[in-house]
Design a protein around this nucleic acid. Sequence first.
DNA 1: CTTCGTGCAAAAGCTTTGCAATGCG
DNA 2: CGCATTGCAAAGCTTTTGCACGAAG
Lengths: 146, 146
Amino acid sequence: MEHLEEATLLRQQGHRLTPQRLQVLQVVKSNARHLTAEEIHAAIVPEQPYIDIATVYRSLQWLQAVGLVAPINIGDGRLRYEYRHRGDHHHHLICQECEQETEIPDDVFAMLKTTIEERYGFTIQLEHLAIPGHCAACRVVMVQRS
Amino acid sequence: MEHLEEATLLRQQGHRLTPQRLQVLQVVKSNARHLTAEEIHAAIVPEQPYIDIATVYRSLQWLQAVGLVAPINIGDGRLRYEYRHRGDHHHHLICQECEQETEIPDDVFAMLKTTIEERYGFTIQLEHLAIPGHCAACRVVMVQRS
DNA sequence: CTTCGTGCAAAAGCTTTGCAATGCG
DNA sequence: CGCATTGCAAAGCTTTTGCACGAAG
């Protein structure tokens, strides 16, 4: 088990650390892609063969509670999880062709927020947005196909 | 069973119409809120006590295939369905306090689309977006509470 | 009359929960 | 040593599927 930087802080805050929780955090944190609970479980099994998927789910809930991971829903029926840098709000462009995810900062939505605030008196609260579409590379491929 | 305007057209196109399918369409169409399959089923039972939830799901899939309804995912674990006016693309602001849904036209995102296209070479394909936040009325209540 | 849709029941997929045993602090 | 967390098994919830019957065109 690598020593994660947040370990000491969490322990100071009175949280109970277990190899399982640390391993889940480690996997979510070190993975570029957003993984499902099952994928996270699969990634841990080689190192900790007896870890149960239920423990992965419980660890993920705990990690959400302490603010270290956030769930994201790309609409395919299962939740995925991402590491949440300290208070960092960002969003993702998800290519429907190659599934690649591009991270975009929250301030891209500044103008949209203002517009909707003005026109509808509605305050947008974007925790995380997964925006579907097509990346440049796949668009080329699609044009060639047609 | 009321005669829905799309009935004749569908029949002309060779589709097989059943009371169940028409009833599902009718409920989705006449409801302002976006309903889950279970809610749709519950709404039909008084009129057709023997309709099964499986039939509701199958009818909804068929209605999606013929382009009359679209699923929307607000991330609470079950899908909701909305009536799709002819080729009409729109989105919703969903108040997290009172759950009220406000419809907004697609062109509110025109600027955002351009920005993301330019900055990331990514073409947004927004079928339907459910944007969380707080409506004006609930914001007042929230301020009063604090 | 043929084909497709329905009802019913069972299964599938993701996530949660109860409980006794284990291990963290 | 006490209590939270784990593993295991079972249940929950939404959605899907197999199959024989029944209805649509």
